[in-house]
Design a protein around this nucleic acid. Structure first.
Lengths: 339, 339
DNA sequence: CTGAAAGCGCTAACAG
DNA sequence: CTGTTAGCGCTTTCAG
């Protein structure tokens, strides 16, 4: 096995080649430094010729910040997070920040990687719909890495957050279904512990209760396609079959549509209404035509990056951003009857 | 604005607290170093108490390698790359490597971010189905960062690569369609420049020609859903409508199914056969039941990480890995007739 | 405007 | 086994 001794060109090499001091080279590569125009060009030419590029690791060592943002993702089977990740990578990039991606299954407990990540002097840590355990929060505080929760919050104020308005969203959906004259409501829940699910569920059931709707049905879906598929089967096989199902996200709603249509031969949108949440791109496909409450991913991402930049300078700041969404009605739900 | 002066705990602080030298602290945190058991515990206690964590940036500065792998992704609308990205993040993590994600639209030309990335002393650069321009290849060579192309190759041997066997895959699909007694074949192509499309197209048309099938139709899809949708419309609206369409990937095949079923009322799998490539999870959904040639993502990812580890020690090595796939027949294509 | 010198936080010989 | 001593490649005073 060859020993890896790739010898890099350093500022010293360039300095010698250009006949200047090493600090002059440093200045030539520092935006607002004072270098004589001709010295600068001489240096840049030598650098170009030698193929020199400043070592950002060394720079970060001095500045104390890395310009790197850690991003923890759980399950990418939800297209909403894929969309978010894509937007986040672009937006961070434009802000001159790097995105260090790491797998953060479940609630982040016992993850070895995340603890490793924290050693990189991250400018911030973003958790995409991943829970922040109190242990992890403490680790981040110790490591002085500010945390931004995306699409989730915590009870304690352990971290800043960016979420959609789940209360308005779920109530809007409940109102939509009631207007469509549905009598037997069901809800397929997301992950039990998640703030997102807790809020959507409370708002949905809360609104129904206010309107005098009794005994809506509930099934656990855990935001997972397989679990939601099983939940949909139970719901549809029961003797008291619901005529409307609100799923806590689009992935589960699409799973429910698949079951209703292909296993029970139901005409979705006429015999049964199914509604999701997030309005992922797939929801608009004619194969699903899913009514959904849209979360503005780009706006949420922009807010996230804004928060990161604030927290870089002021790590102790706390901010909870709530953005508004909108209901997108499509064929999977029966609209209000004309009278 | 508060000045960000987060003062980190250094090995020096721990040394003083534990009454040892700074290098002793370093040893305590180095796996195979010689430290007396009780010294070690004393150090670890002090470290724990102070919340010390070694600065990996400083460590990388010395070792010359960062344990960071850059990963460039183009469009994440293709679920195959989402799946790959998820697997890659896990697999790299297990190998003790970090994943620096960056957006690499198009062919990587003129991208400012990638050039920035190269300053990080990356252990390797992985391009997920993103082209490697000769300019970029040169930049990477200069920066001494080995490149691994995933699901794509280049003509010149500018980088190592991991791809599926497109030749076998496309021929297998052609044979499958011929066995199903289809007479009028069509192909919806992926990105024109991509090696993946070139190989699949050549093998598909090549096999058909060998079997005496004349004048198969071709439409450009560019691996994009909108383009493929338009292509499917043209194909199905023409007077000489095909009875079989092979799409260069699953995303486009699903777009074609949507058009055939919802715009032309065709019974997919009986009146027309549609076949894709990749076998993404969605292909198995009853809504599509898409026949597809499966690429083993986990295996490809494993090979990619293996290559990275080889290249870390021997940057000049070149290897092209080709992995085998398998045809998964589902309802979207008519099977061979019984005779 | 420029060079010399002092580190950023850590690892790695080198003597004890 | 442990402390001392050099740096890794760069930024940043501080004098010229």
């Amino acid at each position: 096995m060859t020993t890896n001794d790739r010898s890099f060109i350093t500022a010293h090499d360039v300095a010698r080649a250009a006949g200047v001091s090493q600090s002059a080279v440093s200045r030539a590569f520092t935006p607002g430094a004072s270098v004589a125009p001709d010295t600068r060009t001489r240096i840049m030419e030598a650098a170009e010729r030698l193929g020199y590029r400043p070592n950002l690791l060394a720079r970060s060592l001095i500045s104390g910040r890395s310009s790197i943002v850690g991003v923890g993702v759980g399950d990418l089977s939800n297209p909403f997070f894929v969309e978010t990740l894509q937007l986040l990578s672009r937006t961070l990039d434009q802000a001159g920040l790097r995105l260090l991606l790491f797998p953060a299954e479940g609630s982040g407990r016992g993850e070895p990687s995340i603890n490793e990540i924290l050693h990189y002097r991250l400018d911030a840590l973003v958790l995409l719909s991943v829970g922040l355990s109190s242990g992890l929060a403490e680790e981040c505080r110790k490591a002085q890495v500010p945390v931004v929760l995306y699409n989730r919050t915590t009870q304690d104020h352990a971290a800043s957050s960016v979420i959609g308005d789940n209360d308005v969203g779920a109530r809007t959906i409940a109102a939509h279904l009631l207007a469509g004259d549905h009598r037997r409501m069901a809800f397929i829940a997301g992950a039990e512990g998640s703030s997102t699910n807790v809020q959507r569920e409370a708002a949905f059931f809360g609104y129904l209760a206010e309107q005098g709707v009794t005994a809506p049905i509930r099934a656990a879906g855990d935001y997972r396609i397989e679990i939601a598929t099983a939940a949909a089967r139970r719901l549809l096989a029961g003797r008291d079959r619901p005529d409307a199902i609100f799923c806590a996200n689009d992935s589960m709603a699409i799973a429910a549509i698949n079951v209703a249509r292909h296993e029970y031969g139901l005409d979705v949108g006429r015999e049964i209404s199914i509604v999701g949440y997030d309005d992922v791109p797939m929801a608009a496909w004619p194969a699903f035509s899913l009514t959904s409450y849209a979360q503005p991913a780009q706006h949420m991402v922009d807010q996230t990056v804004r928060l990161i930049q604030i927290l870089r300078d002021d790590p102790d700041r706390h901010e909870d951003v709530v953005v508004e969404g909108s209901l997108v009605v499509r064929g999977s739900s029966r609209a209000a009857r004309m009278r």
